[in-house]
Design a protein around this nucleic acid. Structure first.
Lengths: 401, 401
DNA sequence: ATATAATTAAATCAACTTGATTTGTTTTCT
DNA sequence: AGAAAACAAATCAAGTTGATTTAATTATAT
């Protein structure tokens, strides 16, 4: 047996790549910064920063703003991210809808397309997704050299026997299907695939309420329920890419039966599907989140479900806080924002946990900023994140083929 | 407001430090390796490795072994970790016992001391711990320049209002007490403090059953219950150093009352304390784990507790698997090894989770290798780990004061 | 005028890489 | 059996890269 591949070493080239990312990240989280300010922030020398900034400006990733007068000394030239320095395509596939967007580096949507689907199989979905990507690029024209990649979000979990394709919250027929490879083959563009919760987490981290945070959990309430984990500045995906699939954690032993074979799973209480069933909405397979929004407007018609859902949700938050000690828990997903806000307002009092400390700068629970498009926007953020975020991987020399 | 400190950049010095760690880690996980083999494993050039190995050998961290003949070409000189290249002091404080060890780089215990305590306050414990450290160094003499530091393990959580000092499983009076600083002041040696579960996890990762793993969870069953999280090659401690405090997650809504104010917390079922209470052992504050070992030998006297504990334990494992998708879950703690093994044998069938896949190389649950000294050994491993493990932090230039 | 802060330029330095060379075996050929 | 060839490991020396240092320059406020 050959020795297992170890953590790789690094060299100047990798180091530079890291430093470039560090510069971008500093500006992204702080807003426009002068070279001198970046140097202070990153502990690098002003000369190094000057070189890197010059290079990034030449590549149009950064752009200079008006000089900042009013202070002593030579006036500083602040640099900010150039939105048109790069573009990204985000795709999202769910039970009833396929959505695609093009965003620029600032996360602004420059084109958007949606198409209805009905619990699609891979054979149905792949050509459709490729077509959406193509249509998006016809709709919004830009220098193809500036396209960073395609990010795709879809419901997890991936490749779990007896779990991926079971029950009403999973998409059928996707077990073992190599989504990223296939889509990459069809489009000729590099593709990253993540589950919707993870994608949403990245979106909130790059552009939303989690912009400055080092560790947080995104609780994605969709057809089912999942968590996106951002820990110590890194996305955590798990050893088999399935971290955060907490929809099937048990919150009520002996409770409602679940498609996974257990009883009392979290997503039997907190999910769109659970809401539809609890509220006895006909044909839950084809119900839409807007229906809940409508009910919300209509007095307390949601109450029956909220009462059932709120304590399981509290338990889930409590468990995540205890297990991961995040700076905050962000709530979002396909559930309409109004409903999310209703749930959030009903959470008080949260259970005691390690998050129960007065030395907090962020509330224990936040509502996500991106609304119903969270996961497409997050999907589009994936390539941007992987190209610009400082990560441990970057410092490691790639093993040659 | 000054801009928040960003992720720092890197330079040659940091890069070298990383590469040194990479070399050590490669040998640690693979056993003795020749320079050429290290180069292949780390993707660095043979020349670079040659330089680093030479340096590490000069510092006595590595030592050459007999050349390896029998193959073609010039025979390789394998290098292995020199156990006497460094030493570490591990301290462990619990309700009834303070233990200290000196280990060498290979994790072998070279001296051990234990002293009884009774739910000690900081004022009582700090001088005692300092004294243990001093006595250890009188007992086993070595070059003080080779002492990497003191690692200390104690029950968490840290600094949580209404949680740290509440209930029979927490140590009273430690809220806000700066343990590491104080012990460092008393001994003049750098000190790292972690909760016992985290320490144990590091121990298993360096020397135990988790030696080669990138992501695993250590479930520490002690007076209470906690988890140590090792994710993607890094220790995850949480934003306030309290990750893994899952003893207070709810496994039975409306179940047994807990000191934290909730009902049905995990550690009310799975912990030494829970076992003592369930088995109606008199004076649980001063009972000892050996008592359970004795009961175990005595037929099925533990059965009443095992029946109560096993499903909450299953739930906890299920939740951890779903949330973190680790390669495995390691079971250990102060609970006697025999009892841990009994629990492990009773876990089957585990609940369905993302870990339920046939493509596994490691069982879903393992019993820790270190036995009852897990957390002291883990504590001693802390300074070794932080000095030798490749980590993201290492690449970041420290901000000057 | 002077102090101050930002930026730039040139020279220096540390660590990795490259390519050629040396070394000590094993294998193959005569 | 002895010599030559093949081979892999290790070393040497020169070259490259990118961060740092030092010194100078610039633009502003006091």
């Amino acid at each position: 047996m050959p020795p297992r591949k170890a953590i790789a070493g690094t060299n100047l080239e990798q180091a530079k790549s890291h430093n470039r990312r560090v510069v971008i990240e500093a500006i992204r989280t702080n807003g426009a910064l002068s070279r001198a300010a970046i140097a202070r922030l990153t502990a690098l020398s002003t000369q190094t920063i000057s070189n890197i900034v010059e290079e990034l400006e030449r590549e149009q990733l950064l752009r200079a703003q008006a000089t900042l007068k009013g202070a002593r000394g030579q006036p500083a030239v602040p640099y900010s991210i150039n939105p048109d320095g790069g573009y990204s395509i985000g795709l999202q596939l769910d039970h009833q809808l396929a959505v695609g967007v093009i965003t620029d580096l600032s996360g602004t949507v420059r084109a958007r397309i949606e198409r209805p689907v009905d619990r699609p199989t891979p054979a149905q979905a792949m050509p459709l997704l490729a077509a959406i990507a193509g249509d998006l690029m016809r709709k919004f024209r830009f220098d193809r050299g500036r396209l960073l990649g395609i990010g795709m979000a879809m419901p997890g979990p991936f490749d779990v026997e007896g779990m991926t394709s079971v029950g009403p919250t999973a998409l059928p027929g996707w077990q073992d299907f190599p989504v990223a490879e296939e889509l990459q083959r069809l489009t000729g563009i590099p593709v990253t695939v993540e589950n919707d919760a993870t994608a949403a987490a990245i979106g909130e981290r790059l552009y939303g309420v989690a912009r400055n945070l080092g560790s947080f959990v995104y609780l994605f309430i969709g057809t089912g329920l999942g968590a996106g984990l951002f820990l110590d500045g890194h996305l955590y995906k798990g050893s088999r890419h399935n971290a955060g699939e907490i929809g099937h954690m048990i919150v009520k032993p002996g409770g409602l039966e679940c498609g996974c074979g257990k009883r009392g799973c979290l997503e039997r209480y907190v999910s769109l599907r659970a809401a539809y069933e609890c509220l006895e909405i006909p044909d839950p397979d084809h119900a839409s989140p807007e229906l809940l929004q409508a009910l919300l407007a209509n007095g307390d018609s949601l109450e029956a479900w909220v009462v059932q859902a709120i304590d399981p949700l509290r338990q889930a938050i409590n468990m995540l806080e205890l297990a991961l000690d995040p700076e905050t828990v962000v709530l979002g997903g396909f559930m309409p924002v109004g409903v999310i806000e209703l749930l959030a307002s009903r959470l008080d009092p949260l259970y005691l946990s390690v998050s129960s400390t007065s030395a907090r700068t962020v509330p224990r629970v936040l509502v996500g900023a991106a609304g119903k498009d969270t996961s497409v926007l997050g999907a589009a953020a994936l390539p941007i994140f992987s190209e610009t975020n400082p990560q441990f991987d970057v410092l490691q020399k790639p093993h040659s083929a």
